[in-house]
Design a protein around this nucleic acid. Structure first.
Lengths: 323, 323
DNA sequence: TTGTACGCGTTATCAG
DNA sequence: CTGATAACGCGTACAA
């Protein structure tokens, strides 16, 4: 099954390859008549340009990479979807590569992208320690990169993220407004900027409100119920984390009224006596801004504004059990 | 920031470009001494081969594409993760492209992959009507494709999927064993093979067991409670679908004991009185077999075994509320 | 064992 | 307006 190339069309039309190339790229230099002939032939022969050849010749691939650990959290794949859309609007392609906590895969993915496959990348880092090593080479080589959602302090690439601090504050406030008398804060122990900002914001709000009891639980801790049986507020980064915490703490939580504060999404139903408040982030906004900044970098334009862009939460949605 | 090429290394070492090329590809023809010199220089200059050039010259990209609608369902991104791993094991790269129900994006994605960017693709179709049109061109051109999980009847590509029929049967049986006195079947109206097989299997099992009441609900229907208040079984494809059905039917379901049968994953907690049975599919197996079949196609090997491979469910897991 | 020369499919730069 | 020609970076027969 031999591929149809420019040469085939050129032969078919009796013109030169370069004329075909021009015609297909809508170069105004080419006569409408010949262009029509060429387009018709291309259509008839079912021609598709070879992208690798085009990248090689043009020096650009017109593609961006999206590097992510996994797509387990809804925010992850939603970022991918919107980044794909925005890239397409800007006549760029987006390739997603996952590394799933595997450093070798991670390095490979970043390497490949920098090898002419993409003109730049959007990076969604997860574990800051290895992120640094893997990304440094590409950064040093001047490969355009933009961090999305989370980032790595040590690298100078632009960052597009959410206003995590304010959102965490607001979640705590709303839990208290809903009647919570004590607060539990559950954020992963990972030393990454997002979790740190969230924790700081939540602690701030709790302290300012003078919460009677405040505990910060680690990834394997259970909630210390103490003697109280009153309404409790639990704020954390993701449903998965909260869910496992609540399972571990089932004995302490049974029969207590709970208000849960969570980021991004809550799937399924709250328990009958509970309320869930979700900080809905502007995921589409993140993706669009990240793609635009990446393309600006690719084009060599100076970055406008601060290195870290923080988009505010779109909405705080309260979910009550439906039955 | 000029890229380092073979030429630079060749100059640096005082050898020819082709020698460098060979040394880097571990060609046994090259003297250990010179290979060492070359590798050292490559390392020192921080050389990275240009993939587009390599693909162009070699005629293969050593990459596979993974085309999916979205990654909303856990099975989707888990397939991607495992396909990435398997591809890497086989020294291939995997690029994911999403189209998110957008036909233009879809066509573009498939086109690009066929343009030299990938040697073949794994396709996870979602809506069979447009899938046919978009994929037909690539298929006709002889572009190697393998369907994963779901597929399109009209196209002859190999299929790797699960044994949906048996799994649906088993879910219904287990609901009945758990005490359900009537059954509700909730599968999307999409005319795709997976949903059809699931529905058929579920109906089979329900009929064989002589269920007193059996209803099949559409995407916007609510459950018809009738007069009964006994235990009810609800089997459907995904948590999202079941969740919206249950919300719409809240009045009928309140206070009834429910057993829910679901595919792939259940996030969050069952309601206090409910039980959830999940058919855990062999997602890693699907991904591995799909990658292997795709690479076999790429290599021009004959496909062994039947066109449709069906992997059995790994496990049926029962989830009880933890508090 | 290494160097020479050509081709991969496309774009860009010249002449004509 | 079009045709010839030289890149782009790499792989590989073939020659030395």
């Amino acid at each position: 099954m031999p591929r149809i190339t420019l040469r085939d069309i050129a032969r078919y039309c009796g013109v030169d390859r370069s004329t075909v190339s021009r015609a297909l790229r809508d170069d105004p230099l080419v006569t409408p008549a010949t262009r029509l002939r060429v387009l018709d032939a291309a259509d008839r022969l079912n021609y598709r340009p070879n992208i690798t050849a085009r990248s090689l010749a043009g020096g650009r691939s017109e593609a961006l990479g999206f590097v992510a650990g996994s797509l387990a959290a809804p925010i992850d794949w939603r970022l991918v979807v919107h980044a794909t859309q925005r890239s397409t609007e800007r006549a760029y392609n987006l390739f997603v590569t996952l590394y799933d906590s595997d450093d070798a895969l991670y390095r490979r993915a970043v390497d490949r992208l920098g090898q002419g496959l993409a003109d730049g990348a959007i990076v969604l880092p997860r574990r800051s320690q290895s992120d640094v090593e893997v990304l440094r080479d590409a950064a040093l080589r001047g490969f355009p990169m933009v961090f999305i959602d989370n980032w790595v302090e040590e690298l100078p690439a632009p960052v597009v993220t959410t206003d995590n601090r304010s959102a965490a504050q607001e979640l705590v406030r709303r839990c208290l407004d809903a009647g919570a008398e004590e607060m539990v804060l559950a954020f992963p122990a990972l030393p990454n900027p997002v979790e740190m900002e969230r924790l700081a914001g939540a602690e701030d709000a709790a302290r300012q409100a003078g919460v009677r009891r405040l505990q910060t639980v680690g990834p394997d801790d259970a909630i210390d119920g103490g003697a109280s049986q009153g309404p409790i507020g639990i704020v954390g980064s993701s449903q998965g984390l909260l869910h496992s915490l609540m399972s571990r703490s089932a004995a302490q939580l049974r029969l207590r009224r709970m208000t849960i504060g969570c980021f991004d999404a809550w799937l399924g139903e709250p328990h009958p006596a509970d309320t869930v408040i979700v900080a809905l982030q502007d995921i589409e906004g993140l993706a669009r801004v990240a793609v635009d900044r990446a393309l600006a970098l690719v084009a060599g334009e100076a970055i406008e504004g601060p290195r870290i862009v923080r988009l505010p939460a779109l909405e705080f949605r309260t979910i009550h059990p439906s039955f």
